[in-house]
C-alpha cells in the first residue's frame, strides 16, 4: 500500500497544501503561467507588489543579467490596489491555491489603507508586507532596515488586518534577526526572506551603468548562500514560521531551506528559466520525502544535523 505523505504546512492560520509558493514580482498574477502549469497545484501564489496608488515604476532598462543571477529595478510598477480589486481579483479569486497579495508603500498610512482594503477580500487569505523593496526611492526599504521602522509599519497594519500577516524582510541590513524579532513582536504571523540584495552592474565599454537607476536588486542562485544563512539565523531567533527564498531553483534547494528552518519556500527568478518550475519542485520535494522516508514534511523543518 502507498503510504500517505503529508506535504501540507501552516503559516499562522494559513494552510498550504504544499510548501511551495511563487515569489512576488516574478509570477505576475499567475494568469501569465496558465499555459505552462496548473495553478491549483501550487501551495501559494504571491502576486505582484501592490501599492495604494498606481505606480509607473522605473525607466527602462530595468534588468541586467549577472553571473548566476540578475539585477532588477522594476520599482513596483502596478496599477494600484483599487484596480487590483476591481479588475484582477475577480479573475484570480477562485484559483484553488492561496492567493497572497504583496503589499508595498512609501508611507505607513498607505500600507495601512492597502491592507485594510485587501482585508475585505474573501479570496485573499494573507498578505505579504513588503518592507524591503530596494527599488523605490522613498520608504519601502527604509521601514525594513531599522527595528523602529519595522515595528511602526507592522503594528499599524496589524491593527487593521486580521488574516495571516507575513512580513517580508530585507537582506540589506547588518543583523536581520533584529528586524525579524521586531516584526514578530509587532504581530507578524510569519516572516519571509530574503528580498533582493542591493547590487550594481556596469557596461565597461560604454562606461555606463546597465540599470536606469544605477543600482538594483540581485536575485537568483547567486544570492542563495546568503539567503540560506539568513533563514538559518532568523529561524533560530523567532518562534513564528519562516518562509525561505532567494535562489531556489529546484527541489534540493527547497529542502536545504527547509532544513535551515523554513516552513515554506518561494520560487522567484527560477520561473523565468523554467515557467513550470513550481510543479517540478513540488514533485522533487515528494521524491526526497520518499527517498528519506519522511511521512510529514514538517519533520524536515529545521532538521539540520549539526
Amino acid at each position: 500500500m502507498i503510504k500517505e505523505r503529508n506535504t501540507s504546512v501552516k503559516l499562522g492560520n494559513l494552510v498550504l497544501k504544499n510548501p511551495v509558493m511563487t515569489a512576488s514580482g516574478t509570477f505576475g498574477y499567475g494568469s501569465e503561467f496558465t499555459d505552462f502549469l496548473d495553478l491549483n497545484q501550487i501551495g501559494g501564489i504571491i502576486v505582484k507588489g501592490t501599492t495604494l496608488h498606481h505606480r509607473e515604476g522605473n525607466p527602462y532598462p530595468r534588468m541586467a543579467e549577472t553571473p548566476s543571477g540578475m539585477l532588477n529595478a522594476v520599482g513596483l510598477q502596478n496599477k494600484g490596489v483599487h484596480y487590483f480589486i476591481d479588475h484582477i481579483y475577480p479573475s484570480i479569486k477562485d484559483i484553488d491555491s492561496n492567493i497572497i497579495v504583496n503589499v508595498s508603500g512609501s508611507q505607513v498610512e498607505d500600507y495601512v489603507e492597502t491592507a485594510r482594503l485587501i482585508n475585505e477580500l474573501e479570496g485573499i487569505p494573507a498578505i505579504e508586507l513588503n518592507i524591503s523593496c530596494p527599488n523605490v526611492k522613498q520608504g519601502g526599504m527604509t521601514f525594513g532596515v531599522t527595528t523602529s521602522g519595522a515595528e511602526e509599519v507592522v503594528k499599524a497594519v496589524r491593527k487593521v488586518y486580521d488574516k495571516t500577516l507575513i512580513v517580508k524582510l530585507s537582506p540589506n541590513v547588518t543583523d536581520i534577526t533584529e528586524i525579524a524579532k521586531a516584526a514578530e513582536a509587532s504581530g507578524a504571523d510569519s516572516v519571509s526572506l530574503i528580498n533582493t540584495l542591493l547590487g550594481m552592474a556596469i557596461d565597461a565599454e560604454r562606461k555606463k551603468p546597465l540599470l536606469s537607476t544605477i543600482t538594483g536588486g540581485l536575485s537568483g542562485p547567486a544570492v542563495k548562500p546568503i539567503a540560506l544563512r539568513m533563514v538559518w539565523q532568523v529561524s533560530q531567533a523567532v518562534k513564528i514560521p519562516v518562509v525561505g527564498l532567494g535562489g531556489v531553483m529546484n527541489g534540493q534547494d527547497a529542502i536545504e531551506f527547509m532544513l535551515a528552518g523554513a516552513s515554506a519556500i518561494q520560487l522567484g527568478t527560477a520561473n523565468f528559466i523554467d515557467p513550470a518550475v513550481t510543479i517540478r519542485v513540488i514533485n522533487e520535494i515528494e521524491e526526497y520525502m520518499i527517498r528519506h522516508n519522511v511521512s510529514d514534511i514538517n519533520e524536515l523543518v529545521g532538521a539540520l544535523i549539526i
Binding site: G28, E32, F33, G57, P59, Y60, P61, Q77, T269, P275
Partner: peptide, 17 residues
C-alpha cells in the same frame, strides 16, 4: 528588442514607455 527576463509578461523588465 528590449532586453527580457521572463518573456511572458510577468516580471515587467522589458517595458517600453
Amino acid at each position: 528588442e528590449n532586453s527580457m527576463a521572463c518573456g511572458v509578461g510577468a516580471c515587467l523588465c522589458c517595458v517600453e514607455d
